[in-house]
Design a binder for these strands. Structure first.
Length: 191
DNA sequence: ACATCGATGTACT
DNA sequence: GTACATCGATGTC
């Protein structure tokens, strides 16, 4: 299948503006301890963006967003779920919202309590549960174990739309997804 | 199809 | 006290 070599994405890949990195991650592979799949949905957040945790500057929670690019920013959402971001240039990050599961399906099913492949990783909280990602992963480099992030092997058809679940910055269309994928957190509005 | 609700850490007013 | 980058369950049209 892969026409390319599925190169490991290094720090330089992430050290760009999120508006560029977020769509470039569609079709990339994310594994944590060998469990994961293909990234099919992302959102971009930068420090000028009122929807971003980084908007009001560094705090204890968002410190990783102001650290070096190519690292993880993991935060707790609504007091319950964990969510994973890839840190890009200073104070910006890409929220990983959905995966198409390809590796370690049995371990994901156990962690999520369902066998339904479409429900394993179809949302930012779900995929962290499926991959057993928690706060202990915050600040870890993405180009070293337990993370593996591989470049997309084929050009993806990337859809663009408004971000989900925010109340500010709603006009900025920074949600990116693999067109037609059945593994998204929500179905995009059809044209 | 949509609306509402409960679970609750972290940051804000 | 209120809001929130969520999810799953429950209720209604």
């Amino acid at each position: 299948m892969s026409s390319g070599s599925n190169a490991i994405l290094q720090r330089a890949f992430f050290a760009r503006d999120v508006e560029t990195v977020a769509p470039a991650l569609i079709g990339a592979i994310l594994l944590v301890d060998g469990v994961g799949g293909m990234i099919v949905e992302t959102e971009a957040y930068d420090s000028n963006d009122p929807a971003s945790h980084a908007y009001r500057g560094p705090t204890a929670r968002n410190a990783s967003m102001f650290g070096p690019p190519g690292h993880a920013y993991v935060y707790r959402s609504y007091g319950i779920h964990w969510c994973l971001n890839f840190v890009c240039q200073m104070g910006s990050g890409v929220l990983i919202r959905a995966l198409e599961p390809t590796a370690g399906l049995d371990r994901m099913a156990q962690a999520r309590g369902t066998d339904d492949i479409r429900k394993l990783c179809s949302g930012p909280g779900k995929l962290c549960a499926a991959l057993s990602i928690d706060k202990s992963f915050d600040g870890k480099p993405l180009d070293q174990p337990p993370f593996v992030v591989l470049a997309a092997s084929d050009a993806a058809t990337v859809g663009i739309g408004p971000r989900i679940g925010i109340t500010r910055g709603v006009a900025t269309p920074w949600r990116f997804y693999l067109e037609g994928s059945p593994f998204l957190s929500r179905r995009p509005r059809s044209a």
